[in-house]
Design a protein around this nucleic acid. Sequence first.
DNA 1: CTAGTTGCAAAGAGTTTGCATGGCG
DNA 2: CGCCATGCAAACTCTTTGCAACTAG
Lengths: 135, 135
Amino acid sequence: MSMYKTKQQRQLLDFFLKNISSQFTINEIVSQICPDDGAGKSTIYRRISKMVEDGTLMKLRGEDGKSTVYQYSGEGTDCGEHFHLKCTSCGKLIHLNCSQLDDIRTHISDDHDFTVDVKKTVLYGICSDCKKDKE
Amino acid sequence: MSMYKTKQQRQLLDFFLKNISSQFTINEIVSQICPDDGAGKSTIYRRISKMVEDGTLMKLRGEDGKSTVYQYSGEGTDCGEHFHLKCTSCGKLIHLNCSQLDDIRTHISDDHDFTVDVKKTVLYGICSDCKKDKE
DNA sequence: CTAGTTGCAAAGAGTTTGCATGGCG
DNA sequence: CGCCATGCAAACTCTTTGCAACTAG
């Protein structure tokens, strides 16, 4: 399969590494990486899908509930190990490293016989900053 | 706004009430409700959006990670009060009434200063039945 | 009667696919 | 040199929107 390391593959990975805590839509990625927009959009789609498959990226639903955004979750992160909180107001993604939260998985597994897939799960809500703004 | 109770509105609500624990894509809804398919699809879209807004329906991502499915979550359910587990293998949605899970919300709220919105959150993973099948 | 609602068709947005070309190893 | 990856354009699917006809209250 992905045996070749092409320029485009490296560009894409670099882009996410440089913006390791940010999320982007396909269009944002395309316009940031491709010279004069539009070029290579299908390649971006193809590559992104594979990166989601192999865990390099997380696929999330945007704040508006319509768009799809992607964020790096590969090496260097422990995104396969912890839960994520996503603010539905500002879009921020919070990595939740917390032993108590890990207990939840054990609890759900033991008591509800359901194996939670942390990589696919995002808890949506309102972050502290946005909470303040509303006051 | 929604002051009129039209035939279509009632049909749609009845359909979800009759299939209170199932999920449907827009196309499935359209073909089940509309006589000879295709008819009134835009009405379905318009009405579904409103039902999601007012909490009558939950909007979920389908098993394939691409499609969007809807399930009843209005009166008679306590879907605004508990978490949901969704099996990424068979698509089943599990309503998680469990005090320990409620503690999670308190914990995240108190210790992580983040207010989880239960209605928008779904925990994805593998249910017991599908786990067995793999053995 | 009046304003919200519906149906249709057309427009839009997002994503996928076929095929010839290009580039990695 | 062989094969996978890329780019482009066309095809597709899903969803939204404009507008005239309709209907509940």
